[in-house]
Design a protein around this nucleic acid. Structure first.
Length: 356
DNA sequence: GATATTTGACCTGC
DNA sequence: GCAGGTCAAATATC
């Protein structure tokens, strides 16, 4: 076992431990009465668990690729179900007709792929006809009317299936009850390197839409505003009687987003490690249902860094909570009153709305 | 012309 | 036999 493998192995263990810890916290939440102000915290922990498991899968996948082991069956996380491997043995004896061999091999291989399902809500006003980009390039290869379903199911496979032997597929099914809700079933993890091919990879209509949004001056301005906010928001912790709760999870310093025509801020592409992915509303007064947002790079006074900030809408409206970290301590939950939040007065942002 | 999507036909598993 | 999944030729788009 070389050092690289050890490092990945340790990373995997850490990821799984984190998932387990947050699952325990979730369980504790559910064991008590869940009040409305706890809902967003529940959402937070669920996102973290998902990120941990996804990171675990990525690590396993990378380890698999460097060892060049064919068809390693990846152990699924609890939220992932693996299709049962067929007990038939005559399917594996290789006695196929030549022109059928590939098809049958593919079918058997796919039977072993891990599957998991995500639900993605798409707002009508953002113009998407389908779920938002998940960071991978997919090619649609089929559509099928499903018995009892109002909307057809679409089938996608990785664009690089042939070039990089990547067998990831996904199925997209629009909800009958809620047309804005898409249930996406993923089968198999990507073994391709799409970041490497990003410059040359073909674009889907969804990505075309994203690029149009990214070129929108309003969106560029919004991203600049977000960067400014990150640079100017401070929390004075010098004399803060802080209330910390142990809470460790990984975050990434990367972040991107855009605003739509109505200047609603929306996270469009977040790193897998970044908690969130749902619409924050610190800009728009028209989306008051959530005042939570993630600011992965906000610097607090002293050495603490804000990773996320939550303006409680409970009966303590002036109380903020944040997940913070420092160079010497892990990420912790921190609660602080409003007066400790400082925004640079030169920052072009209507903080009266945010600090409502 | 290259690439992506559509859609009817075919295949597979239950 | 049926429903779901995939293929591949035709068509659309860039």
């Amino acid at each position: 076992m070389d050092c690289g493998f050890n490092w990945e192995y340790n990373s995997l263990i850490n990821e799984l431990i984190q998932g387990m810890e947050h699952t325990k916290q979730l369980r504790a939440y559910f064991s008590s009465t869940v009040s409305s102000d706890k809902i967003q915290e529940l959402h937070l922990h669920m996102q973290i668990i998902l990120s941990s498991f996804e990171n675990s899968l990525s690590i396993l996948k990378w380890t698999d690729s460097i060892t060049q082991t064919p068809q390693v069956v990846v152990a699924p996380p609890p939220s992932i179900s693996v299709d049962e491997i067929s007990p038939k043995t005559d399917d594996l004896n290789g006695n196929f007709k030549d022109n059928d061999q590939d098809l049958r091999y593919v079918s058997k291989k796919r039977k072993q792929l891990p599957t998991w399902t995500e639900q993605v809500r798409v707002s009508a006003e953002n113009g998407f006809e389908g779920p938002t980009d998940d960071g991978y390039s997919w090619r649609k290869y089929g559509q099928k009317d499903i018995l009892g379903a109002k909307y057809p199911r679409s089938y996608y496979r990785c664009t690089y299936r042939l070039m990089q032997n990547c067998w990831a597929t996904k199925q997209v099914q629009r909800s009958d009850d809620d047309p804005a809700l898409f249930e996406i079933t993923y089968k198999g993890s990507h073994t391709c390197n799409q970041a490497f091919n990003s410059a040359a990879q073909p674009t889907s209509p969804e990505k075309h839409e994203f690029k149009k949004q990214a070129n929108n001056p309003k969106i560029v301005q919004s991203n600049q505003m977000l960067a400014n906010l990150q640079a100017n928001l401070r929390v004075n912790t010098n004399d803060l009687n802080k209330k910390e709760t142990t809470c460790s999870f990984p975050f990434s310093p990367t972040f991107s987003g855009f605003v739509d025509e109505n200047l609603h801020f929306q996270v469009s592409q977040v790193d897998d490690n970044l908690v969130g992915g749902y619409s924050p509303s610190f800009v728009s007064p028209t989306t008051p249902e959530s005042s939570y947002f993630s600011l992965p790079s906000c610097q607090m006074n002293g050495s603490r860094r804000i990773h996320s900030l939550h303006h409680s809408e409970s009966d303590l409206p002036d109380l903020f909570s944040a997940n913070t970290s420092s160079t010497s301590s892990p990420i912790v939950g921190l609660e602080f009153p409003l007066e400790h939040v400082e925004l640079d007065p030169n920052f072009p942002f209507d903080n009266s709305e945010f600090f409502r």
